Simulated scan of single mutants.
Amino acid sequence: MRHRLLSVVRAATMLALVPALACAQPRSAPVPTKDMQLFLLVGQSNMAGRGTVEAEDSTVVPRVFMLDARQQWVPAREPMHFDKPKVVGVGPGRAFGVDIASAWRESEIGLIPAAVGGSSIRSWEPGAMDGPTKTHPYDDAIVRAKAALASGRLAGILWLQGETDSNAQGPADYEQRLRAVIANMRRDLDAPDVPFLIGQMGRFAEKPWTVHRTRVDSIHQLVARTTSRSAFVRTDGLKHRGDTTHYDTPSVREIGHRYAKSFLTMVPAPARR
Rank of each mutant, 00 (worst) to 15 (best):
R94E: 06
T235S: 15
D243R: 11
T133G: 05
V60D: 13
A150P: 01
F96V: 08
A11V: 13
G89T: 10
A115Q: 02
A148M: 10
W73F: 12
I121A: 04
T164M: 09
D193T: 13
D248W: 05
K86Q: 14
A180Q: 14
Y138C: 00
D130G: 00
A147R: 14
R272C: 01
T52W: 02
V267I: 14
D236S: 14
G256P: 05
R186H: 09
E125P: 00
I255A: 02
D193R: 12
R234C: 06
R179P: 05
T214H: 09
Q161R: 02
D248T: 07
R177N: 06
D190C: 01
R225A: 15
E206W: 01
V211S: 15
L15F: 12
L197M: 11
M47S: 05
R153P: 00
F196N: 04
G93H: 07
V267T: 15
F232S: 07
D83E: 07
A147V: 12
E106D: 13
L178I: 11
R258C: 07
Q176L: 12
R273L: 11
G202P: 05
S7F: 10
A95C: 04
A191K: 04
K239N: 15
L21G: 14
H220L: 12
I142D: 00
H81Q: 12
M47R: 03
A172P: 00
L264K: 11
P208D: 10
P132W: 03
D173W: 03
W159A: 01
R253G: 07
P195F: 04
K207T: 09
Q169W: 06
D139Q: 05
S262L: 00
I182K: 02
T214M: 13
Y174Q: 10
S120C: 04
V90F: 09
G256A: 09
P113F: 06
A180R: 13
L67I: 10
L160V: 02
H81L: 01
A150H: 14
I157T: 09
P75D: 05
S262N: 11
V90G: 09
P132Q: 06
Q37V: 01
K134D: 11
